[in-house]
Amino acid sequence: MPVVTGIKGIEIADGRLTARREAGGGWEVFEVPLPAVVSVKEGINLPRYPSLPGQIRAKKAELERHEPARREAALEKVRLLVPQEERATVQVLGEGADAAPRVVEVLRELGVA
């Protein structure tokens, strides 16, 4: 089955799916026949959250249970570590609009202004 990952735009017409994916500030477009598998990225739409009546109805819905066929992990987790923070301590340049001249100095030091 065709797979398109990380898409941020989707249209379905005439049994075909058109998917748009961000690439280098523009978009790249894929067109695939259905059925297809896609994974979508945040930002494809604004999520609709379930309404209260919808939630009540969902409570009565029948649950189908399936047991996944598991097998031994070929990528085995040994341990988790918290990465070391590399950042230096913050330098507060000032408060409010009065800090502007100091900010400009820093921008010049960094070579961006």
Partner: peptide, 28 residues
């Protein structure tokens, strides 16, 4: 964000950002 930043300015960005733009434009 302040704890993770190298530099910080505390206050209302609606005042600070235009002040920075003005300072950059005036060369000061």
């Amino acid at each position: 964000i302040v704890a993770r930043a190298d530099y910080a300015v505390i206050g209302d960005l609606g005042e600070i950002v235009p002040a920075i733009v003005a300072a950059l434009r005036s060369g000061g």
